[in-house]
Design a protein around this nucleic acid. Structure first.
Length: 570
RNA sequence: CGGGGUGUGGCGCAGCCUGGUAGCGCACCUGCUUUGGGAGCAGGGUGUCGGAGGUUCAAAUCCUCUCACCCCGACCA
């Protein structure tokens, strides 16, 4: 690729719209341009990187026996209504109408479509298992697009779907995808952590996410890993081993005057008690009315856990008026004792906590020495709290949880028969019995993975692409294109690399050396070759490794073999 | 959806409070000089001031509506 023929609009200044370093660099390096919120144009350099990421993913999928297809972007609404996701996916689903007024959606994922395909064509267990995938654009009307490609409304994703006859078979299919994912991300130069995760709107039985750990704010996923065992979990569903409750004699119930004292910490300070003796009573509005959630004063409610528990899609804190009506008290004094007319869900820690304090459902009053069972009966007891770093691992019971942030680049879902049942996709087993397919769904964000690599690999001067996904392999920089000798050497190298199957970028612009060097570092091609008077006098070229900034020289005639040697070291 | 903010040349911004007919840096074009880490000098082009309506002799500036974009939040009683 010649710079003069390509479209590489680099920017000197940092675009105001980007706050994440990877987003800034992609814009500055002339890789992407924004069309609208969460919608981007991929420019030539980035396009090449995307193709490389996609190709790596493709090869690893194929290696595991998956086969590639392409499904439509535009889907009729009916099929989404059949599975119920027309309603449950909610506002993220981009809906439109055709000229006849028929409802359509732009596909955010393709479980419905693949199941439609398979139910019409696969009838026998003999045809299973099968794994079909595509690399396709997806649309999600994100509540708040941000971070460039990390949370876009249009993005490229590899999505695969498995169909198995038995659970044992499914487990193998699932493991193959896990293997493919680790292999693909490793080849992209990205180390990933596999964590247990929530299934969200996807439904199904269980799920995992593949996370690239990053130190920056770009890491929107919070995960916990164990210091002792290999337990790794998304914060959405992280739990920990709870400490035994203090053994105390059960004390008599006591109402205390707490004028204008509401927040848990304030109440604790006012009553001179540790905040762990407080219980917060939170009222949430769900799809089916209100629920009260009880967690210890130092804990927070995990909304994902609570949503899953009550089976609600939407969940919000109740408004002030609702709280007043339900608790018969001003906001800030809710408590479980005497609370009626709604489900009361107590966290597991609360249920065993003796003599705790909570609101009295009366203005300016709290109640001391509340005991679950004696003073109120929770409708359900469950772990509904947010996990925090330092707690004991729930899996091994020994290690401590460590929090890390990362970018989710892939996910795998065990779907069970959710879609095959709702779409009536069945096959005949050995005994001639009709059974729904056991399904799995597996995604890799191609565009997101590419940006994650930038977030992970950069320095003050620009991007440092891993060599496997760099837009091009080598960047030829003649210091002065007007110099006939330099231009001639540059052209000769350009041909030699192309013939050797190595992809060169030739900066054939009549720009000053400084500009070319700055741009070279910014766009981050792994190896730079500088052609200048200094070296030419001795018949030599300067090689610079982008990552280390180390320079070395080699005779002009040995450029290709020298490059190959260098390539092995990076 | 709630709160905050911003829309002025390709990019980054000033001007707005206090109305008087648009400016700076970068980029771009021409010339000369320069030429190994984002050059210097000189000259040049570039705007329906996001859009609509209103107030006014006069609106980028004030008012109303609207659109777009950005940030924070949408979890703590």
């Amino acid at each position: 690729m010649r710079w003069s023929e390509a479209f590489i609009p680099t920017l000197r200044e940092v675009p105001a719209e980007a706050e994440l370093i990877s987003h800034q660099l992609l814009l500055r390096a002339g890789m992407i341009r924004k069309l609208a919120a969460g919608i981007y144009i991929y420019l030539p350099l980035f396009q090449r990187t995307l193709l490389k990421v996609a190709q790596i993913v493709r090869e690893e999928m194929n290696r595991q026996g998956a086969v590639e297809i392409t499904m439509p972007v535009l889907h009729p609404a009916e099929i989404w209504q059949e599975t119920g996701r027309w309603d449950t996916v909610g506002k993220e689903l981009i809906r439109l109408k055709d000229r006849h007024g028929r409802d359509l959606v732009l596909g955010p994922t393709h479980e419905e479509i693949i199941t439609f395909l398979v139910r019409g064509e696969l009838r026998s267990y003999r045809q299973l298992p099968i794994n079909l995938y595509q690399i396709q654009v997806k649309f999600r009307d994100e509540i708040r697009p941000r971070f460039g490609l990390l949370r876009g409304r249009e993005f490229t994703m590899k999505d695969a779907y498995t169909f198995d006859a038995t659970e044992e078979s499914f487990k193998k299919s699932y493991q193959k995808m896990i293997d493919a994912y680790f292999a693909a991300f490793n080849r992209c130069g990205l180390e990933t952590v596999k964590v247990e995760s929530d299934t969200g709107a996807m439904g199904g039985k269980s799920a995992h996410e593949f996370i690239v750990l990053v130190d920056t704010e770009g890491g929107e996923s919070l995960i916990f890993t164990c210091s002792n065992c290999d337990y790794a979990v998304h914060s959405d569903r992280a739990s920990f081993k709870e400490a035994a409750p203090p053994s105390e004699k059960v004390l008599p119930y006591e109402k205390v005057h707490t004028p204008n004292v509401m927040a848990a910490e304030e109440v604790a300070r006012f009553l001179k008690l540790p905040v762990q003796k407080l219980v917060k009573t939170m009222i949430y509005k769900t799809d089916n009315g209100f629920v009260a959630a009880l967690v210890r004063g130092d804990r927070e409610v995990n909304l994902v856990k609570l949503k899953n528990l009550v089976g609600s899609i939407e969940m919000d804190m109740a408004g002030t008026e609702d709280v007043q009506r339900i608790t018969q008290a001003p906001k800030g004094f809710a408590g479980p004792v005497g609370l009626a007319g709604l489900e009361i869900i107590a966290d597991t820690e609360v249920a065993v906590l003796p003599n705790f304090v909570s609101g009295a459902n009366e203005g300016d009053y709290h109640i001391k020495n509340i005991n679950t069972g004696r003073d109120f009966k929770p409708s359900r007891v469950a772990d509904i709290k947010v996990a925090v770093e330092g707690e004991v691992c729930a899996s091994c019971g020994k290690g401590k949880l460590k929090a890390s942030r990362g970018i989710e680049v892939g996910n795998t879902f065990s779907l069970g028969t959710k879609y095959s049942v709702s779409l009536k996709a069945t096959f005949l087993d050995e005994k001639g019995g009709e059974r729904p397919f056991i399904m799995g769904s597996y995604g890799i964000g191609i565009t997101r993975t590419a940006q994650a690599a930038v977030e992970k690999f950069h320095d003050a001067d620009g991007i440092i692409w891993p060599k496997t996904i760099a837009p091009l392999d080598v960047h030829i920089v003649p210091v002065k294109m007007e110099d006939a000798q330099q231009a001639e050497v540059a052209e000769r190298l350009y041909r030699a690399f192309n013939e050797a199957g190595i992809e060169p970028l030739l900066d054939d612009r009549k720009e000053r050396a400084g500009v070319k060097f700055k741009d070279a570092d910014l766009i981050g091609i792994p190896v730079q070759i500088v052609i200048g008077d200094r070296g030419l006098k001795e018949g030599k070229l300067e090689f610079k490794v982008r990552k280390t900034k180390e320079s070395s020289t080699a005779p002009i005639g040995e450029a290709v073999p020298y490059f190959k040697k260098l390539w092995e070291t990076i």
